[in-house]
Amino acid sequence: MAKIALITGATAGIGEACAHLFAREGFDLILTGRRQERLDALAQQLNSTYNVRIAVAAFDIRNREQVLHHLDILPDDLKQVDILVNNAGLSQGLDPLQNGSYDDWDTMIDTNIKGLLYVSKLVANWMINNKKGHIINLGSIAGKEVYPNGNVYCATKSAVDALSKGMRIDLLQHGIKVTAIHPGAVETEFSEVRFKGDKDRAKKVYEGFTPLTAEDVAETIWYVASRPAHVNINDLVLMPTAQATGSMIYRG
């Protein structure tokens, strides 16, 4: 029987790269995201390439009712989830706190913290019933170090760091692993989303050095997910070689 991975935010970037990698390794997949057409295209591609079972659920992770509805109606056999990759997350704006947007703050808090909690509670209970599971939360170097104008985004990723530690304690007695992965600069849609579609500004974030790719992070996620049952990697930070801290990058 194939193992099952549930990946949030699978329509682009790290989530999409994880979908390809886990499918290649023979996992059946539950893929979530907001863009139905992208989910459908990805599912068709993965199914034809790897001949694995794919279920998709299009919803906004900020909406608790949508999260609970779309995951609850999945077939019971797909609720035997082995790996949950809490990848869905974003940043909005890059402003000093005093100039920040209330709407941007709400979007980041509702996505990066509350959305992660909605999915994690439901799936953790499936894992408890199944007596197995591994939750992998996507944090950020921003959750380890605050950088200029990062304020609320950094706070949300600090929350992911703390929640990962809390989950690990709470789920310990059930034998469920919890890992937090904290990447540095990764060239995906992240900066384009942060700058609300300004592609030129987003491109400048990665000029002068080689950033991580979505595939680099996905391979790291697969590494921690594929350790033996008695081994858990609690916390892992990965950075481009050119990046020393959240805000210090050598652009040679």
Rank of each mutant, 00 (worst) to 15 (best):
R62L: 01
C18L: 07
E192H: 10
P148K: 12
I30C: 08
I83P: 03
G33F: 01
I135L: 13
I30A: 08
I113F: 07
Q92K: 15
I176T: 11
R201H: 08
D77F: 08
P228F: 00
K196W: 07
E65G: 07
I221M: 01
T49N: 13
G9L: 03
L71N: 01
G13R: 08
L163E: 11
Y250N: 14
F190M: 11
R34M: 03
G184P: 03
A124W: 10
D106C: 09
D235E: 13
Q80N: 15
V205N: 03
A244Y: 14
M108V: 04
L71E: 01
R201K: 14
P96F: 06
S164F: 02
D76E: 15
R34A: 09
N232T: 14
Q45K: 15
H70M: 04
D235C: 00
P183F: 10
V178I: 00
L84G: 10
L21G: 03
E65T: 06
N232K: 07
K196R: 15
N47H: 15
A10R: 05
W126I: 05
V217E: 10
V146N: 02
I7W: 04
L46K: 03
H20L: 05
H134V: 05
D103G: 02
V160D: 10
T179W: 04
V152Q: 05
T245A: 02
V81T: 11
K3R: 14
L171Q: 12
V146L: 06
S226G: 02
Q36G: 02
Q66P: 08
G133I: 05
D216F: 03
Q243K: 00
A58K: 01
Q44W: 10
A55D: 14
V146M: 10
K204F: 06
Y147P: 00
D235M: 01
H182C: 03
I136S: 05
R38L: 15
V152A: 01
E187S: 12
V81A: 03
H70K: 13
D40M: 12
L78I: 06
T49H: 11
Q44F: 12
T156Y: 07
R227W: 04
P228Q: 02
L122A: 09
E65F: 02
R168P: 07
R64I: 11
A225M: 00
Y102F: 14
L78D: 02
K144R: 15
N112W: 05
A229P: 06
H20N: 12
A142V: 03
